[in-house]
Structure formats: C-alpha cells, structure tokens
C-alpha cells in the first residue's frame, strides 16, 4: 500500500520549491530521470485487462522496477482523509523485464520520461517527494528525443509506503507535511485537479530572497 498526493507547479517556481524541500527535509535532492513504460495485457489475456508499469531509472539502469498500482481504499473513512491510500506492489527486476512481459502477451500502451528531482526522508513516515516534468517520446523508446507533455508545468508527487495497519498514521504524516508546501502548491488526491496556487509567486520570491533559511 501507499499514501499519495499530487499537485502541479509552474517550472519557474521549482527552484524555490527545491530550496524549501531541502530546508524542510535536511536532505539533498537526487536527480531523477526515469523511463516509464505502461503495459496492458493483450486482448485475450486475463478476464479483464491488466496494467503494469516498468520503470528504468536512467541514473542507475539496473535493476528495473515493476510496479502494480491497484485500487484505492474506499468508504467513509477513506473519504475523510485528504490523502489517497491505494494498493501498490513493487519489485526490482533484471533489465530483460520488458522482453519477459512482451513474451507473456503484454503490449506497450504508452511510455514517458520523467525528469526532475527526488527527496527521500523520514518525517513521521518514510516520505518521497518528486518534482518532475513529464515528457513524451517522439519515437519508440527515444529517451533523448522528447517533448514536455505540459510546457512550463511540473508535477509534484508525495508518496509514502504504508500497510493496512498503519495507513492512517502515514496519511496523517503526509498530510501534515503537505501543509508546509501550501504557499507554493496545493496537493490533493490524484485525479482531483486543483491547479496552481495564487500565492506561489510571492512565496517563491520570499524563499529565493532568504535562501530557504526560514524555519517553518
């Protein structure tokens, strides 16, 4: 399981966000360059179509990651929390994993290149924040020939691994962390678009002028 929230930020404010994150988390950013392949099962395979993601971190090309994102937690309890709790299973795998899934009857649905930065830290829970631009490839697997999907906008994703026992504490930790980022961006459950926040420019200017040294 994982807890997740997403938001967007204008590229011009990303530097300020990174300064803020660095100040909040006390860790340096890691460069992120990930080739993501989204596969779907062929027409006659499985009673329903299934989807799996294969991720190749181009900074460390092996191992790859196989990721399955399942359904989100439902019910009144899930409605009340501001974070999406969903089933997610990951496995590292050797680099021939794409060949294996093709052989099993899976087809490439789409692929993208995620470029940006990531922050990993512990703050009530193990939290990962990624700030990245999403790029599409102009030719199959052409990771050096890409164009951004949304020019001038980057995606911010906050995730934290959880279990069925501790997800409410993890969700609370993610939620409370997100409040610190509120002046720059609004984070919400995936699929709930909230756009950019009007205070972003002023907050970014303030952060850039004092180098993120302000204690929040």
């Amino acid at each position: 399981m994982e807890c997740v929230v997403q938001g967007i930020i204008e590229t011009q404010h990303v530097e300020a966000l990174e300064i803020l994150l660095q100040g909040l988390c006390g860790v340096h950013k890691e460069h992120l360059r990930v080739h993501e392949l989204y596969l779907k099962s062929g027409p006659n395979l499985g009673h329903v179509t299934s989807e799996v993601r294969l991720l190749c971190n181009l900074e460390h090309p092996e191992p790859w990651t196989v990721k399955h994102v399942g359904g989100a937690l439902r019910g009144a309890g899930a409605e009340q929390i501001s974070v999406l709790v969903r089933n997610m299973v990951e496995s590292k795998a050797s680099k021939n994993v794409l060949r294996l899934f093709y052989a099993l009857g899976y087809k490439l649905d789409h692929e993208l290149l995620r470029v940006g930065s990531a922050f990993h830290f512990k703050r009530g829970a193990w939290i990962t924040v990624t700030v990245s631009s999403i790029n599409k490839m102009l030719k199959l697997h052409a990771i050096d020939d890409t164009v951004p999907v949304t020019l001038g906008i980057q995606v911010v994703e906050v995730t934290a691994p959880a279990t069925s026992e501790n997800y409410s504490e993890v969700a609370a930790a993610v939620s409370s962390f997100c409040e610190y980022l509120a002046p720059l961006l609004h984070l919400s459950k995936p699929g709930v678009s909230t756009g950019v926040v009007p205070t972003a420019a002023a907050a970014a200017a303030s952060l850039m002028s004092d180098g993120g040294g302000t204690t929040l």
Binding site: S50, V66, N87, V89, E90, S91, A93, G105
Partner: peptide, 23 residues
C-alpha cells in the same frame, strides 16, 4: 520462459504482482 530463453531475476514480491495481474 524456456522457449524464448528468458530468465528474469526479481524480488519475491513479483509473485504478488503476478497474482494481482490475473493474467
């Protein structure tokens, strides 16, 4: 997959992924 001479090394959790894919 012997026929195609593929061997993949993965974490044990790949079994859970295969179960969830239901293919």
């Amino acid at each position: 997959i012997r026929g195609q001479r593929i061997v993949l090394e993965a974490d044990s959790s790949i079994q859970t992924i295969m179960e969830k894919l239901q293919s």
